[in-house]
């Protein structure tokens, strides 16, 4: 049983004056539970659009997407909110942390929308923050953090509900190589130690090679889908 399966997935944007932009031209693949997959391609290839649809942030205009063997269109609005909350964790290129809100509160945010009893919130948030090595930054606000630290907060936030799959959209795109290494290290460890499914979007071959498998997308079509032969290991920054 695959966690994610897409068949003939298409996405067309309809602009003004019948301007159509077809971003995805029928994509097929499936991802199993526990895989670490990189979706790679140059900008404008449709890789981000694909990720958004996998994360239920956007809807396909053609083809099918099955999450846990159920068609994405068959999920009700509340079920989609539940999936995003409990089954998926998002890490964005631009961090998307709430300003003027502490690291602790930012990480806690998904718990507010979850069915986790309130008594367990603080503990979960502490564990997630600890896992990304930011214990000493809990009370800081995003404006007081470096880019790499911000992204680690975002990862902690994605982890806090212990999701099935983590979607990371260019997580190292705004970071220097050292901070990027730290982020990749965390993702690799979440995959190996905790068994999370990780789906990573990147345009850099080097970053993509940290995954087990690379789906190469070009002009809205899959160009290749291969196992990574010489897998990169991120330098360990956090004990």
């Amino acid at each position: 049983m695959s966690l994610i399966q897409v068949t003939g997935l298409e996405k067309t944007y309809y602009g003004d004056r019948d301007l159509e932009t077809k971003v995805l031209h029928g994509v097929d693949f499936s991802i199993n539970k526990g895989e670490f997959v990189a979706i790679m391609g140059p900008s404008g290839s449709g890789k981000s659009t694909l990720l958004h649809m996998l994360g239920f942030l956007d809807e396909p205009t053609g083809g099918n997407y099955f999450f846990e063997d159920k068609d994405s269109l068959a999920y009700a609005k509340e079920e989609v909110a539940y999936l995003r909350n409990k089954k998926m964790g998002f890490v964005f290129q631009s961090f998307n942390l709430l300003a003027r809100t502490s690291v602790f509160e930012n990480v806690k945010l998904p718990l507010l929308y979850s069915d986790v009893p309130e008594s367990g919130w603080a503990e979960r948030a502490h564990v997630a923050i600890h896992a990304v090595g930011l214990k000493h930054r809990e009370d800081h606000e995003p404006s007081q953090l470096s880019g790499g630290e911000k992204q680690r907060v975002a990862i902690a936030r994605a982890l806090v509900n212990n999701p099935e799959v983590i979607f990371a959209d260019e997580p190292t795109g705004n970071l220097d190589s050292k901070s990027g290494q730290a982020v990749m290290d965390i993702l690799q460890r979440l995959h190996e130690k905790e068994g999370h499914t990780v789906i990573l979007i990147t345009h850099e071959t080097y970053t993509a090679e940290h995954a087990e498998r690379i789906i190469h997308i070009l002009d809205g079509k899959i160009k290749s889908d291969d196992k990574v032969a010489n897998r990169k290991r991120a330098t360990t920054f956090i004990k």
Binding site: G55, K77, R84, N85, L98, P110, Y113, S114
Partner: peptide, 13 residues
Amino acid sequence: KEIGLRKALGATE
């Protein structure tokens, strides 16, 4: 942006 983020993190309408 905040609304989008909250929705991505599981907020319902």
